[in-house]
Simulated assay, not measured.
Amino acid sequence: MTAVHIAATGTALPGDPVDNAALGAMLGVSEEWIDLFVGTRTRHFGWDPVTGEVRGSLADLCAEAAARAVRASGLDPADIEFLVLATATPDTLLPTTATEVADRLGLDHLPVYQIQAGCSGAIQALDLGRTLIQGGRRAGLVIGGDVTHRFLSPRRDTAKLPTEELVNYVLFGDGAGAAVLTDEPEGERIAVRAVLNSWTGRGRPPGQLLDWYGTTDRDSGRRMLAEDYKAIEEHVPTISVEILWELLGGLGWSLDEVGFLLPPQLSERMTARIVERLPDGPAHEVSCVADTGNTGNALPFLQLDRLLPKFAAGERAVALCVESSRWIRAGFALEKV
């Protein structure tokens, strides 16, 4: 079977970081409450937190991240043979954001896919990209990103919002990330040894809701988004342990052979709870959520971007991802060759 490699990554975060003091002033809550509840220090928005003016789209961020990844890989855009983009928040339903990004990158006459998913979509994109490489493609782009401007607004009366909706204002941020996949060790020379993508939500209520409205129901009173934070606190640490053991078991790796761990990134405090529940090992944690907020499908790429400068030949890394919308287990294992 053809080996698949990550040659390079690229990321994009919009605007200046928004700290808890600024966010608290916008929401009418204390800076201390945000810190105690989620622990995230800053996040980035593609919209003005004061006026709500949208200053950047998902396509803007994804094209920027993908262009950086291609430049870092040393490949020419003409070498890219496919593009896969994962998001829960596309700019439009049609045309897809994936085709808009391909156009901005100057790509044409190649398969372009868009995956609609929460944070596990980034791993689904990696899985599809790996399959395309194994099917004979030489190089391609996998991209993940999300934006919040359709769901979070400073003009809303946040004092009247239920907690399950208000929590999203302190959890999320905007961002995008990308990776160039190749059939030969190029650039960073990171082999993708395993990818896990498994839905396990049968009979289980969703932990997150993200709705959308059409012309006939845009004035509906139903919630646009909601987060069952208690269910997430209960289930995500346990699921993360399951993902870790399944990846290691499938590869025959021991905990002692893993040098880096990329844990789920819902919030800084949730990440700490997850890591506390994982079995002890020598792996160094690679996290970004305290600085970026939860950026959905961008998160695994943001973690990869932080991993690369530390990743030496022969070292191994494992990434874990839990999508709580309907409980999807995902992850991947890497080795620098």
Rank of each mutant, 00 (worst) to 15 (best):
E188T: 08
F172Q: 00
W212M: 12
G207N: 04
Y169V: 00
I190L: 07
L210A: 13
V192W: 03
D219V: 01
G214T: 10
V167G: 05
G201R: 02
D228Q: 13
D228W: 06
V167T: 11
D183V: 07
M224L: 15
P205K: 14
N197A: 13
V180C: 07
D211H: 12
T200R: 14
A176Q: 08
M224H: 11
V195N: 04
G175C: 10
T182R: 03
R202S: 09
A191F: 01
R204V: 12
D217F: 08
R218L: 11
I190T: 07
A194L: 07
Y229E: 10
L171C: 01
G207E: 03
Y229F: 09
W212P: 03
L181N: 04
P206H: 03
N168S: 11
G175E: 02
S220Y: 07
L225R: 13
G177D: 02
W212R: 09
T200G: 02
E227P: 00
Y213N: 12
I190A: 02
R204I: 12
W199T: 08
P185L: 12
L225S: 11
D219Q: 11
R204Y: 05
R222Y: 05
R189W: 00
A191P: 02
N168L: 14
A178F: 04
Y213E: 14
Y213M: 13
A178G: 03
E188Q: 14
G175V: 12
S220W: 09
D174M: 09
R189D: 05
R222Q: 08
A191V: 10
T216Y: 13
D174A: 09
L171I: 02
G175T: 11
T200W: 03
M224R: 10
D183F: 06
G203N: 13
R202I: 06
M224V: 14
L181M: 07
